[in-house]
Design a protein around this nucleic acid. Structure first.
Length: 103
DNA sequence: CGTTTGACGCGGC
DNA sequence: AGCCGCGCCAAAC
């Protein structure tokens, strides 16, 4: 459980996202549940703020249904995940075996 | 300051 | 299965 000792919640969100291992994904809601004072929508908003040149693996965060969210950068997200070995079906559905289980 | 935003989640139908 | 409505909540405006 990560507390928001950081100056703002975004910092905490980014710290958690940075922990997601290569080849794994988690959801906006699951991240939010680890950070008091956060919410799925806030996590989504935080992801949208990350610049392209950032080292934060924003593309490892998907919706609770394990589908890649529909947004302008969805294609890049799909490509990046596939390059890490993540199996994605036609409906942009990620194989549950890639779900990150912290601990 | 008050209002809107957002790549969401989930229950209900 | 999919769509709709509401709750969520700090940040951005």
């Amino acid at each position: 459980m990560i507390q928001s000792n950081q100056p703002n919640v975004y910092e905490s969100i980014y710290l958690v996202v940075a922990q997601i291992p290569i080849g794994y994904v988690t959801s906006y809601g699951r991240i939010a549940n680890m950070i008091p004072g956060s919410s799925a929508r806030l996590v989504a908003r935080a992801m949208s703020q990350i610049p392209d040149d950032s080292t934060i693996p924003w593309y490892r965060v998907v919706s609770s249904t394990l589908k890649i969210a529909k947004f302008p950068g969805s294609d890049r997200q799909r490509v990046k995940l596939i390059s890490e070995g993540v199996k994605i079906s036609e409906g942009l559905k990620i194989n549950p075996s890639h779900l990150w289980k912290p601990g």
